[in-house]
């Protein structure tokens, strides 16, 4: 999947993956896609919750080599 920006949150614990995903989205344009890589297993539920509450769209969640990869499309 194509993306416009990548943010690597590997090694970070709650709430950093969410708080910094939000920061990474700030300077992106509506419709652009942010790829987030995280190792915190809590991020799986949190990313969905973040999307649900902020109106951004979580296009996909996958697991790659022990890390979680999220594709977040900006509202």
């Amino acid at each position: 999947m194509n993306f416009d920006k990548e943010f690597n949150a590997s090694g970070m614990s709650c709430p950093l993956p969410i708080v910094k995903t939000k920061k990474a989205l700030v300077d992106m344009a509506s419709g652009q896609v942010l790829k987030v890589i995280a190792t915190d297993s809590g991020a799986v539920k949190d990313m969905q919750a973040f999307a649900d509450q902020t109106g951004n769209t979580l296009l996909s969640t996958s697991e790659e080599g022990g890390a979680y990869v999220f594709m977040m499309q900006k509202k």
Partner: peptide
């Protein structure tokens, strides 16, 4: 933690 998360959620 709660404050920074809530702020990220708007």
């Amino acid at each position: 933690i709660l404050a920074s998360t809530a702020a990220a959620l708007g």
